[in-house]
């Protein structure tokens, strides 16, 4: 079964639980774009959503830092403030991704029991289709150096596409992350929105493969360490042209919601 949908979404927790520092109107515009993702995801009738996200040192601390990982447990659960989330994991697809990624030379770790990071459940809070479907959490290390190279992420994305295309399920792929932001650093109030805009323009022209040539240092400098999740997705999408549903730069974060035809 071919891929049935592909999106990239932001996951900044201020979209879920808004402090007074955030522009409410901007937050609501991002919610509206995520509602459009939900509408399109529902129309695509996926059997499973495979989300590619970076762990915010929630599931994986310094006791083990996998470059790539797959959640193959029965359920994936996490909490943020008053919210509690628990999603069914699509075990057959999750297991196939682990087994076939290893056959393809990628060696992802797998887990059956780590707390789910908000990078997964913030997009799902707003965009899970109705009725909900199982998920497969796919992890790309973004915050604990040394992270996988963009080239490696892109190559894994190509392998994921081959795996998904051979599956019986209707699969949606969603990358969670970005764009420019620098949480916890002296650059928090000064994201690189020029980088984001140039990136989105190139993706709209179908030039996603160029992201594989970025370096880790360039991503760090641009506040785009999380772009690795997009680059993984772009590996699965070839030369598809991005449709930018929203780009909403806040005082600290370039919120981008993007769709691709599949």
């Amino acid at each position: 079964m071919p891929l049935v949908a592909a999106f990239a979404c932001p996951h900044t927790p201020q979209l879920l639980v808004r402090p007074p520092t955030e522009d409410r109107a901007l937050v609501l515009r991002v919610h509206a774009a995520l509602a459009e993702v939900k509408r399109r995801l529902t129309a695509a009738r996926p059997d499973v959503i495979a989300l590619i996200a970076g762990d915010h040192i929630e599931g994986f601390f310094l006791n083990a830092v996998p470059a790539l990982a797959v959640h193959v447990g029965a359920r994936a659960a996490g909490e943020f403030g008053r919210y509690r989330y628990a999603f069914d994991v699509h075990e057959p697809l999750a297991r196939a991704i682990v087994e076939q990624s290893i056959e393809a030379g990628f060696d992802p770790a797998y887990t059956q029991d780590v707390p789910l990071d908000y990078a997964f459940y913030v997009p799902l809070h707003f965009a899970m289709p109705s009725p909900p479907v199982p998920i497969v959490p796919l992890y790309v290390n973004v915050y604990l150096p040394p992270q996988p190279t963009p080239r490696r992420c892109h190559a894994w994305g190509r392998a994921l596409r081959a795996i998904v295309d051979a599956r019986p399920e209707r699969v949606a792929l969603v990358a969670s992350g970005g764009l420019s932001h620098f949480p916890g650093t002296e650059r928090y109030g000064a994201p690189d929105f020029d980088f984001d805009r140039a990136l989105l323009a190139s993706l709209a022209e179908g030039r996603g493969a160029e992201t594989a040539r970025l370096t880790g240092e360039e991503l760090d400098k641009a506040g785009n360490v999380e772009l690795r999740t997009w680059i993984t997705l772009l590996g699965a999408l070839g030369e598809a042209r991005a449709e930018v549903l929203a780009y909403e730069p806040s005082w600290h974060h370039g919120n981008a919601v993007v769709a691709w035809p599949v």
Binding site: V17, P19, R24, V27, Y143, P183, G184
Partner: peptide, 30 residues
């Protein structure tokens, strides 16, 4: 703290979570 080796993101989110519990009325849940 960063000079002592603290991970910047951990610092950031530890403070967010403390603030969310200290000032719950200041946060809007969607």
């Amino acid at each position: 703290l960063v000079a002592l080796g603290a991970h910047p993101y951990l610092l950031f989110m530890a403070q967010v979570r403390l603030t969310m519990e200290r000032e719950p009325a200041n946060f809007e849940y969607f």
